[in-house]
């Protein structure tokens, strides 16, 4: 009896370890695969040139990735500028001010928002955001545009990352001890002062973690952004320019025009680029988080 139980335990341990290795190795295999596929491009061009060249003309043999890197970064940045303040304030409202009834209504609603397929956000962007930018927002700044812009991509993307950001931030804020809030309140601070100076400060590592997760999602988001941000391979100089993020480049071109020399390899390189950006970003934020946590607990 005991023997079988011990054997079962050993089997469970070994098999879960193997399964863990499999899931980890997928990441490594993807990285290796992408690198391998990009090698033909590296043989003809130097990496630095690929990253800094801003002319994308595969027919002429010119592969500049800078427009796509800038497109990805700018759409993500706009999305963050919109969603960070909104999400931080919303989650503070939900945890510090809102009644239980409101909380019970809003939090499930946010989960619904998270479950909407990206293509619907894209359609919503095309139907509402793009025309709104074209006829209302851009004219305010004296710019004329089709509406398919970095700004449109940023707005759609920001709405898409709302749910994950808010729900993680609410969870983080819930962990702040009530006694800490009481300490600040009992000194005569208002709830807002307490939220600003004590709660947000204490919750900083968690809030940064929420933002990091949201950014990782934003970097990779493809279909909705592709539908609204114009897809012109030029470095955007303002939020009213069209942009061309890396995921959109891959989705639009993969499987087509493969007869052009090195095109296939160039798309693989752009995928590798995205992979490295997300990987490096997570690594850096992990380091920042460790520092912050160390400072608080040390």
């Amino acid at each position: 009896m005991l023997r079988t139980r011990l054997i079962k335990n050993a089997i469970a341990k070994q098999s879960s370890f193997v399964l863990l290795l499999i899931s980890l190795s997928v990441v490594i295999i993807i990285g290796i695969g992408l690198t391998f596929k990009s090698i033909p491009l590296f043989e003809s061009f130097n990496i630095w040139d690929l990253l800094t060249n801003h002319v994308w003309a595969p027919m002429k043999g010119s592969f500049g990735f800078l427009p796509f890197i800038m497109g990805t970064l700018s759409v993500t940045l706009v999305a963050l500028l919109i969603s960070c303040p909104l999400c931080i304030l919303s989650s503070i409202y939900l945890t510090e001010y809102a009644s239980n009834a409101l909380k019970n209504m809003v939090l499930p609603l946010i989960n619904v928002l998270a479950a909407i397929p990206p293509v619907l956000y894209g359609v919503w962007g095309v139907l509402f955001i793009v025309p709104a930018i074209q006829s209302y927002i851009a004219p305010l700044f004296g710019v004329s545009t089709s509406g398919y812009t970095i700004l449109a991509g940023g707005i759609v993307l920001s709405v898409m990352i709302f749910p994950i950001m808010i729900s993680i931030m609410v969870e983080v804020l819930k962990t702040i001890p009530a006694e800490l809030k009481a300490a600040s309140l009992s000194l005569g601070a208002t709830k807002w002062e307490t939220a600003q100076k004590v709660i947000l400060r204490k919750a900083k590592p968690g809030i940064i973690a929420a933002i990091v997760l949201a950014i990782s999602r934003a970097f990779g988001e493809t279909i909705a952004v592709l539908m609204v941000c114009g897809n012109v391979s030029k470095i955007p100089t303002s939020i009213f320019d069209a942009g061309y993020p890396i995921p959109a480049l891959i989705a639009n071109n993969f499987g087509e025009m493969m007869s052009i020399p090195l095109y296939d390899s160039a798309l693989m390189f752009s995928a590798l680029l995205l992979f490295v950006i997300i990987f490096g970003f997570n690594l850096i934020s992990r380091i920042i988080l460790n520092r912050l946590e160390g400072k608080h607990n040390g």
Binding site: P177, L180, A182, A183, S184, K197, R201, H296
Partner: peptide, 10 residues
Amino acid sequence: LLSQKPFPLP
């Protein structure tokens, strides 16, 4: 107010 456990502000 002096609470049960000290809660220094962060």
